[in-house]
Amino acid sequence: MTSATVTAAARFGRAASRVPDVVFRSGSGVLAWVAVGILGLLAALLVANSGQALAKFGISFLTGTTWDPIAGIYGALPFIIGTIASSFIAIVLATPIGLLTAIFLAELAPRRVAIPLTFTIELLAAIPSVVFGLWGVFVLGPFLSRTVEAWVVDTLGWIPIFAGPPFGVGLFTAGVILTLMILPTIVAISRDMITAVPDSQREAMLALGATRWEMITNAVLPYARSGIIGAVILGLGRALGETMAVTMVIGNRPQIPQSIFDSSQTIASQIATTFNEASIGLQTSALISLGLVLLVITMTLNVIARLLVWRVAGPQGTS
């Protein structure tokens, strides 16, 4: 994989020396660096525009529990908690389902089953977020409130975090929607990671008298471990930053949730619902600071995940 990169560099290394070549080469070079420039500029502009709020509140911006534009007090903790809680629900649900699916597709399913299933899951990733949101509000939310949520509240409601009432709008519904949205990511990348495990590892385990499943858990998964962790982190990154579907089903209440069925608000949904009405100045700056927090979290996760995935599959691997 790396060799492709090396030869790529040398492909036109010496041949491209005449004037039109140099022009073409530097022109395309500038455009390539646009990607880097966008990333740098994005970070710089977010930092610059969040200065006002961060200077005023300092660390209490992250720890404050009150978000009150009228009083001019901005504490982001409710949104940070809402973001983490909804993504946590999604990861808890999506990791086992996604990993089992990847195992089925890569190790167990015959081709004529694996191919259409993979295709279906790829299409799931193509559904626009806002369509998920619409379906979430009118179909999934009411369905969950009648079934899963009602049942959990009835049986486990005495535990505070499972307390009702189940509205069908709130953290839990958001978590389920996020699960559906990150499943394709986790499935696709985990499957690639599992496929990258050399057959010699499978044979070694089978020759010791392992069953298929023992071969998978004892040889294949440990070998692909870091790549699978990378896949889950990439899914987590998507969940943390996902905006529209969450905004439509989470209930938009800027307070720290007490139960998984409470209405809540994430960083992204808070920006989406209030940015346009915000008065330019401190309030906009506070919202952009929220964006900066989200940027730091998702960028860190993304970098870690990419490095883990590259370690297994090489830099040409899954994008």
Partner: peptide, 10 residues
């Protein structure tokens, strides 16, 4: 790759 993973709201 990092840009692909960037939350679109940002």
């Amino acid at each position: 790759d990092v840009l692909v993973g960037m939350p679109s709201i940002l």
